[in-house]
């Protein structure tokens, strides 16, 4: 049954697992503590610090990445679970050195302030367009609501996404 743990219990062992991760098309083999999340593997073991940790509890969206083309939270995904799956991070969305249209629109529309939630917002926005959920402003707002922004740049993000969709850059493949 479910083991409940509390303070002051015995000393645990450490388990490791070897995982082959393919991130932004690049494979790498990592020997990791089994506890390492995809988020921490990206940040601490692959040096891809663009993906952010805002809560580590699945409640803010800052760690959003794409796994097999779907947006997910990397903080609640074990790195080991991603073996053989394609992981895309903010570092992997630009094409041929040019920023993704969503990245450009976020700059043009000032869709961020401190910028910390921004990689997650952009990963969500790219997926949102792919999901065909950017038809109306209300739809954009609803399906961008899994990404918190404390600076309060939401209306500008909506404007940026609206702009990308209206210019037909929506289904830009990454």
């Amino acid at each position: 049954m479910r083991a409940d743990i509390s303070r002051g219990t015995t000393v645990p062992e450490v388990f490791e697992t070897v995982t082959e991760l393919t991130v932004n098309g690049r494979p790498s083999v990592l020997s990791l503590d089994t506890r390492v999340t995809l988020l921490d593997a990206l940040r601490d073991h692959l040096g891809l610090v663009g993906t952010k940790k805002g809560c580590d509890q699945g409640a803010c969206g800052a760690c959003t990445v794409h796994v097999n083309g779907k947006r997910v939270l990397s903080c609640l995904t074990l790195a080991a679970q991603c073996e053989g799956r394609a992981v895309t991070t903010i570092e992997g969305v630009a094409r041929a050195g040019a920023p993704h249209p969503v990245q450009e629109a976020f700059v043009a529309r000032d869709g961020f302030q401190c910028g910390f939630c921004t990689p997650g917002q952009i990963m969500s926005a790219i997926a949102l367009i792919d999901e065909e959920r950017a038809g109306t402003d209300d739809e954009i707002r609803e399906f961008m609501s899994g990404n918190l922004c404390r600076c309060g740049a939401y209306p500008n993000m909506v404007a940026a996404i609206r702009e990308v969709v209206s210019e037909g850059n929506g289904n830009a493949v990454i």
Binding site: L48, V49, G50, T51, T89, I90, E91, A94, P99, Q103, E104, F106, V107, D110, F112, G115, T118, P119, I122
Partner: peptide, 10 residues
């Protein structure tokens, strides 16, 4: 923002 391109690129 002059720092915009860096922020959106992570």
């Amino acid at each position: 923002r002059v720092d915009g391109p860096r922020k959106v690129a992570g």
